[in-house]
Deep mutational scan, measured.
Amino acid sequence: MSGNGNAAATAEENSPKMRVIRVGTRKSQLARIQTDSVVATLKASYPGLQFEIIAMSTTGDKILDTALSKIGEKSLFTKELEHALEKNEVDLVVHSLKDLPTVLPPGFTIGAICKRENPHDAVVFHPKFVGKTLETLPEKSVVGTSSLRRAAQLQRKFPHLEFRSIRGNLNTRLRKLDEQQEFSAIILATAGLQRMGWHNRVGQILHPEECMYAVGQGALGVEVRAKDQDILDLVGVLHDPETLLRCIAERAFLRHLEGGCSVPVAVHTAMKDGQLYLTGGVWSLDGSDSIQETMQATIHVPAQHEDGPEDDPQLVGITARNIPRGPQLAAQNLGISLANLLLSKGAKNILDVARQLNDAH
């Protein structure tokens, strides 16, 4: 009898209710805020589980004197976190989706994509230029951005401005803007500013005609071990179906173009009346040469937790077992079709030249 009692006690200790789920994140304040929001949602869904947040620095956090596009290494903000995932030191990792490459290392998958916040870019102005827009900034004003995508589009749109690289986390960039006289304004992701509670610093939100956004911008991705079915089931509740389908289309477009950090590629997606609209573009580094096109596809946005595919093969690095396969494939095909259209119009040449120029500098 006593033996059975011990077995029952052991089973209770090993039951999922007692389990601590370890969540990996970057150390920056924004990353911690984003991770806290994901953990809060998981806690609400699984009140019996405990969650421990483990923060670590990544290569991208450490190399702050070089433009991201020049470092010449993929997975700048993800490699150390993936290493911890691989060694079973954490069970899942919360990322900004735009930091996750469209091809993940073997053994990993994006197990959830959370509801997207505003994906557009924002302009934050130096205190002396508050009330201005990019259009009304004085001639030769210097605007800071760490992104080739932003610089290429904005140089084309605002030729009277000069664009220079600015690195560091959000706090560091804002301090550089406010305390030094080098920059009249800087460009940042609206979602990051909003998550930090800095709505009052948003001086201008850039519309798609001015600057399309990065693939996955404004959404959070939760990376897990691809074979860890328990954790895949656990994080599945975080999937937002519309965000998922938009981001599958965007990531398929980028992957098929073979774009990345070192080339200016941008997108804009919208879901309306059962249609998914995808606009994508590529630019030369100075913005003088560009190709942009829009395509659409009829896609039914499923309700969360309709029964999805059981075999769960990944699409552009994403596993969404609780979302039907048909809409996911339709979104992926839309991204591939748009990429093929741009490639047929000469996108590869623009991107190759951009890559060579970026590598040469």
Rank of each mutant, 00 (worst) to 15 (best):
L342Q: 08
A84Q: 06
G192Q: 01
V215Y: 01
T66L: 09
E182G: 15
H239P: 07
Q328H: 11
D178A: 07
Y46F: 12
R251F: 03
L81H: 11
I63W: 08
A191E: 01
L76E: 05
L232Q: 01
D61F: 01
K132E: 12
R150K: 03
L81C: 08
K27T: 09
I291N: 09
M196F: 14
G281P: 01
Q50G: 06
F158H: 14
D286P: 08
V353S: 10
V202D: 09
G221S: 07
G111F: 03
I205A: 08
E293L: 06
A226M: 15
T319E: 04
H120G: 09
V23S: 01
D289R: 09
V267Y: 01
W198K: 11
V263R: 05
K176E: 08
P105Y: 03
Y213N: 10
T78Q: 09
D307Q: 04
Q229G: 14
R325C: 06
T319A: 08
V123Q: 03
F129T: 10
G24A: 09
S288V: 12
G197M: 01
D240R: 01
D286F: 07
R325Y: 07
G203P: 01
I231P: 01
A55W: 08
L238G: 01
A347M: 06
P101V: 08
L254C: 01
I63S: 10
Q194P: 10
Q194M: 15
L30N: 01
L329Q: 15
L234N: 14
G287I: 05
F253K: 01
F108H: 01
L234G: 04
L174Q: 06
L76S: 11
G216S: 12
E293F: 07
I21N: 03
T133M: 12
S28C: 04
L285A: 13
S96I: 01
R149H: 06
G131W: 12
G308S: 09
K74G: 09
V263M: 06
R173W: 01
F125G: 01
F163H: 11
I33Y: 15
D233T: 08
A320I: 01
F125K: 01
P47I: 04
T294R: 10
A270K: 15
R195Q: 04
G107C: 12
T78H: 05
H126V: 07
L220Q: 01
V130C: 14
G111S: 07
I231R: 04
A249G: 01
D307T: 06
G131R: 10
P138C: 10
D230Q: 15
G131V: 12
A252N: 01
A31Y: 01
R150L: 01
S337P: 03
A249P: 04
T35W: 05
L206V: 07
P208G: 13
P309C: 04
L170F: 11
L42P: 01
K87I: 13
V90C: 11
M56H: 12
E82C: 06
V103M: 11
E250I: 01
A31E: 01
Q229H: 11
A67V: 11
V23C: 05
F108G: 07
A226K: 15
P208R: 12
S147V: 01
L285S: 01
H95N: 13
E162C: 15
M196Q: 15
Q153M: 07
G259W: 01
R246V: 13
G60T: 07
Q194D: 10
Q34M: 08
F253N: 01
R156Y: 06
H160T: 13
E135D: 12
D65S: 10
K74H: 10
I53D: 09
A270H: 11
V282N: 04
I110K: 04
I350S: 04
G281Y: 01
L257V: 14
G308A: 11
G197P: 04
H199P: 15
N171I: 11
T59W: 04
D240I: 06
I53G: 05
A252L: 03
R225L: 09
H239V: 03
R32Y: 14
N358P: 15
N171V: 07
L278P: 07
S96G: 10
F158L: 11
R225F: 05
K70C: 08
E179F: 07
T269C: 15
I318A: 01
L315S: 15
V103H: 01
I291Q: 13
T59P: 12
E135H: 04
A249S: 14
V94T: 06
R355V: 13
Q356N: 15
I299V: 12
L343K: 05
D61V: 01
S57F: 13
K70N: 15
A112C: 14
L104S: 10
L64R: 09
T35F: 01
Y46P: 01
N171S: 12
T102P: 10
V103F: 09
T243S: 11
V235Y: 04
I63Q: 06
A320D: 09
I205V: 12
A347D: 01
C211A: 11
G221K: 01
Q314S: 05
K87L: 11
I110W: 01
L338Y: 01
R26G: 01
E250A: 01
E306R: 12
V124I: 11
Q29K: 12
N349L: 13
R175H: 05
V38K: 01
K128G: 06
D178G: 13
S262H: 03
G346C: 15
R355P: 15
P47W: 05
Q328N: 01
L137H: 05
A303V: 05
T243P: 05
V123P: 05
T109G: 01
A67H: 04
D289F: 14
I71P: 08
P309L: 13
